[in-house]
Write a protein that binds this DNA or RNA. Sequence first.
DNA 1: ATACATGCAAAGAATTTGCAGCTTG
DNA 2: CAAGCTGCAAATTCTTTGCATGTAT
Lengths: 131, 131
Amino acid sequence: MNKRYSAQKMMIEEALMRLDHPTASEIHDYIKKSYPNISLGTVYRNLGLMAESGDVLRITFGDAPDRFDINTHDHFHVMCKKCGQVFDAESDRLKELLAQIDQSLEETTGVHIENRSMYYQGICSSCREQS
Amino acid sequence: MNKRYSAQKMMIEEALMRLDHPTASEIHDYIKKSYPNISLGTVYRNLGLMAESGDVLRITFGDAPDRFDINTHDHFHVMCKKCGQVFDAESDRLKELLAQIDQSLEETTGVHIENRSMYYQGICSSCREQS
DNA sequence: ATACATGCAAAGAATTTGCAGCTTG
DNA sequence: CAAGCTGCAAATTCTTTGCATGTAT
């Protein structure tokens, strides 16, 4: 994955697979259960490297800690404002819309788009039922 | 605007009109030239209130300080990775695409979308020429 | 008057970094 | 062995907050 293997890197990978869009600190907590010595700095360091090399997707939510996703496809994340759960959304229709937005933005601004991050919030169906 | 008028609030409004997508600290620097006593806390406090009441748009760029925009229309912001300039993009076409994304997301995830924030990065035309 | 704002400084939260020592190839 | 890692703790950066004092209505 990066330059060298280490037990810690493998544990971080495993945590990313087990947990659902975890934050660095959630990953840290998870690993600590089996390996209490792991340091939060190491988790951050490796997530940063993995995000840079494209092995992991960093999801940035302005008002909350970053979350990470082993699904590196270009897809949407929608967070429920109430329960905090993060939903993935991926479909051909959305891909098509994304491509059209890129094109429209390049035409309007002259900027050649390289990165996009979009963050949607709302109320999920089960939270809507409760209220 | 908020509950009461204050010289500081008026200065912040003016700074928002003069500066292009400024950060809180840029606004603070700008006002300090004519009114050195203004406190950064006051700038943050008022921007927060104005954003909450919808008088100003908070633009959140994961990896950089928030920026603020007196143009409160639902529009895109594209930042050049090289020079850092922020470009606005607003058109009927984009509005239409946004609406379709909302709809598609609600269908896919069942979440009723309430907020969206999107952050695009790329290289602007003048930076492309230079390299 | 009195509710709200300000300035200041301290506190917070998330993330990064320097460094000495341990590991991997 | 050398290049990379790790844990730890301190440092950074952005933003928020508590509090005593000032001010608009």
